[in-house]
Design a protein around this nucleic acid. Structure first.
Lengths: 158, 158
DNA sequence: TATGAATGGTTCGAGTTCGAACGACTGAGG
DNA sequence: CCTCAGTCGTTCGAACTCGAACCATTCATA
């Protein structure tokens, strides 16, 4: 009944499954994206976040907060995207420190062109592998975990 | 009834939750491991795989197959671990090409010293966040997905 | 035995990632 | 008006990652 000092079979298996699944999925997605659109996964994520935002623009901090990358990593990726002509950067009117990243026309076009193939692959690899019920359960668990971790991440302050 | 060309709310949410959860979890684990033991997450994974294997040794290929990293990445990490004195490499008696990586005494000690704290953190962040039933469902889904992807990954041959 | 395909592991170069340190700016409290 | 803590985004150096190219060796087949 008492908690063992280390993880049991069950927990360890689930943990490894999470790591392994995420890694493999990431690798396959990355490859497809590279072949189809010449984008890395993180670059594509940035583009999609922008496309989802009103007006296709977002401040760097908001972008970094939602993303899977660090502040400095975001700076790098946005610079790459700007070099590629997919994103433009401009000053934020309300705060001189702020920088707003916004999609160019070319950026919009790239997102529209890339999204269907990407979505199809995600569906193929991730969604269609499980029964409807299993998928629902998985989705629920993941979202609960994400929310939990999100609150946990912001708790460093005294 | 027909599948939409793009992912629905439901699927997209789950997909992002998976990416976000894995990334955050990885970051927190990495940090703890670095502070506690001076190891990166991938290094720790290599050590644990070895500790799980009979005799604390495994051939490079077997190690790479199970791990979340590529062949060349593994070479690099094992070299780091060897420099740190935690792992030794020796020739494989049955196949001159092969290399066997094995834990040193110091490697065993490191694993034993690090595991409890690591396990506690995984339990805290990953396992204890969900109810027993939710966790079981999540684990089942993840393991099914991993197996599916594993077969899918080996299908490149004609 | 010879030959060609496949495997095991390393090396190499380019790209990506992170955290720490930084300069610029804001906003609250005296 | 000052000052001082906190925020915004960038820069920097070091570490990590990957795929492709590469030898050495094995295995299958003739």
């Amino acid at each position: 009944m008492d908690e063992p000092p280390c993880l049991g079979e069950r927990e360890l298996g689930a943990w490894r499954a999470l790591l392994s699944t995420a890694a493999t999925l990431n690798r396959l997605i990355e490859q497809r994206l590279k072949d189809d659109a010449g984008l890395s996964h993180s670059q594509y994520e940035v583009l999609v976040r922008l496309a989802d935002a009103p007006g296709g623009e977002l401040r760097m901090t908001e972008l970094a907060g939602a993303a899977t990358t660090s502040k400095s990593g975001l700076t790098y990726q946005v610079a790459q995207l700007e070099k590629a002509g997919l994103v433009r950067r401009r000053a934020c009117p309300e705060d001189v420190r702020g920088i707003i990243a916004s999609l160019t026309d070319e950026g919009w076009a790239k997102v529209r062109a890339t999204e269907p193939g990407h979505a199809a692959l995600v569906r193929d690899l991730f969604v269609d592998g499980l029964s409807r019920d299993d998928f629902t359960a998985l989705a629920g668990g993941l979202e609960a975990l994400r929310d939990l971790l999100h609150t946990r991440s912001g708790d460093q302050a005294s």
